[in-house]
Every structure is written in structure tokens, then in C-alpha cells.
């Protein structure tokens, strides 16, 4: 693999995206709004008492951290891969003397760096303004980082294999929209998984979406018992393996299909 070329690509993507940062700030702003809405909804619901074991402050913390995790794990690449395959731009990608993975990584890292430079100050500002009382345990923080990394990988690969269906289907954006709706309900966005009603909660725990966003937040804020944490971690790794296998299969078959029909 050509690591130096890959690094140069990441660097140049980042630089050119910094140039257009107002655009990315706007995108980031748009993504921040839904978590904020539910922050205020649940803070209002909790009021002076607790809901599902969570106080007003707990909800505020939950959604502030969630908007950060959402930003880190959201993969804009998945929307562009389908377009590239359809428009034939994929050829150009395959012409580079390095793995196309670098191209994806470049836009992932560059996008995240640019957007986080907007999102982190906003979240910190909101935290100072709303002043929720929060106690973070060292164990929570220690467990947060690996689950966050796995969440990003899972959300990325899950979206990517969906996007690769563009080799056979013309409109994968429908699938991605469906996926976004599922994420909205089941990943802990509309409500923390602990607050979801019975049947939906079971779905949320079993399906992969919670492990893309909500799970790391719950881990950081110490909302999970040891048993729940281990189960969650196991499911996260399990779904990641599933996503990886699907990605490999579709990638290989897709390229063969692409070469067969000539793009």
C-alpha cells in the first residue's frame, strides 16, 4: 500500500475543506439541531422529577455528549459513494495507484476535523450555559474511547455496504433515508434507549443502530450495569463483524460486476 500518497491525500483534502469551512459548519449545525430538540424535550419532561431513572441534568448531559458522538460517527462518505458509482466517477478512484480506502479515509478525517472545530466549542458553550451536574467515573471515560471508535467503524461500514448496493440498484439514497429513520428511532436520538417503551427498547438493544451512537454515550455517563455493558460491547463487536463481512462480499462482487458492465 502507498502510505505516503495516502497521507498526502488526507492532508490536501483537509486543507481544501478548511477553505470551505463555512459550508461544513452549516452542515454540522444542521446535524446538531435534532439532538438539541430532544435535549429540551426531555429536560422539560423530566422537570423536577426523574424519567426512566434520569434527571433533567442527566438528559442534558446525555444529549450534549450524544451530539458530539453523532458528529464523530456520522459518515458523509456513504452518500457520495453511491453517486460516484452511478456517475462513473468510480473509475477515477480505481485509477489511483493506491487503495480507494484512502480516499474515503481522507474525506472522513478531513470532514470530522473541520466539523468538530465548530461542534466542540458549541457543545462546551451549551454545557456552560445549562450547567448540568454530572459525575464522570474514570471507568466510564476509559470505556468510552474504545466504544466510540467501534461505533464509528460500525456506522461507517454499515452505511458503506448499503451504499455499495448502488452497483446493482439505481437509487440507494432511499435505503440511506430509511437507515437514517431507523437510526433516529433506535439509536438513542429520539430518546435514550432506557426510556424507550418495551417493544421498541428490545429492538433497539438487539439491532445495530444503538451501537452506532447511543451506546458510547451511555457508557461514558455510567448508565449501564456491568452486565449490560458487557452485553452491549459483545453486540457492538458482533454487528461490526457482520458489517465487515457484508462490506467485503459486496465490495468484491461489486467490482467484478462493475468491470463486467464497464461502469
Amino acid at each position: 500500500m502507498n502510505h505516503r500518497g495516502g497521507w498526502a491525500l488526507i492532508r490536501s483534502t483537509w486543507l481544501s475543506w478548511m477553505e470551505q469551512r463555512t459550508f461544513f459548519f452549516l452542515v454540522a449545525f444542521g446535524w446538531m439541531v435534532p439532538p438539541l430538540i430532544y435535549l429540551f424535550v426531555w429536560a422539560t419532561v423530566a422537570g423536577e422529577s426523574t424519567v426512566g431513572g434520569m434527571t433533567r441534568d442527566a438528559f442534558i448531559c446525555y444529549y450534549l455528549v450524544l451530539s458530539f458522538v453523532n458528529q464523530v460517527t456520522y459518515s458523509q462518505t456513504n452518500w457520495t459513494v453511491g453517486d460516484m458509482i452511478r456517475m462513473g466517477d468510480f473509475n477515477r478512484l480505481l485509477l489511483y495507484p493506491m487503495s480507494p480506502t484512502y480516499n474515503t479515509l481522507a474525506s472522513e478525517f478531513a470532514g470530522k476535523a473541520v466539523m468538530l472545530s465548530f461542534v466542540v466549542p458549541v457543545i462546551l458553550g451549551l454545557g456552560l450555559l445549562l450547567r448540568p451536574e454530572v459525575a464522570l467515573s474514570p471507568a466510564g471515560i476509559a470505556a468510552f474511547l474504545p466504544t466510540l471508535l467501534l461505533a464509528w467503524l460500525l456506522r461507517f461500514l454499515w452505511g458503506y455496504w448499503l451504499a455499495l448496493l448502488a452497483f446493482w440498484l439505481t437509487r440507494t439514497d432511499a435505503l440511506l433515508a430509511l437507515q437514517d429513520a431507523l437510526v433516529f428511532v433506535l439509536a438513542g436520538q429520539v430518546a435514550p434507549v432506557a426510556v424507550l417503551p418495551g417493544f421498541i427498547q428490545t429492538l433497539a438493544v438487539l439491532l445495530p443502530f444503538r451501537y452506532m451512537i447511543g451506546f458510547p454515550v451511555e457508557v461514558l455517563l455510567g448508565q449501564l450495569a456491568v452486565g449490560e455493558l458487557l452485553l452491549g460491547f459483545g453486540l457492538q463487536v458482533g454487528w461490526l463483524l457482520v458489517a465487515w463481512i457484508l462490506f467485503r462480499i459486496l465490495w468484491r462482487r461489486g467490482l467484478r460486476h462493475y468491470e463486467a458492465v464497464g461502469g
Binding site: 424535550v41 426531555w42 419532561v45 424519567v51 426512566g52 432511499a174 433515508a177 430509511l178 429513520a181 433516529f184 428511532v185 429520539v190 430518546a191 426510556v195 424507550l196 417503551p197 421498541i200
Partner: peptide, 21 residues
């Protein structure tokens, strides 16, 4: 599809809240 999804997510957003209060 998008119209149905908008409807479903919007409605669920209310149902889940009013399960609690």
C-alpha cells in the same frame, strides 16, 4: 417513502414522549 418516513418518525417522537408523561 420519504413522506412516510417523515410521518412515522414524527409520530414516534410524540408517542415515545407521551409514554412517559
Amino acid at each position: 417513502l420519504n413522506a412516510l418516513l417523515k410521518l412515522a418518525t414524527g409520530w414516534l417522537g410524540l408517542v415515545i414522549v407521551f409514554e412517559q408523561v
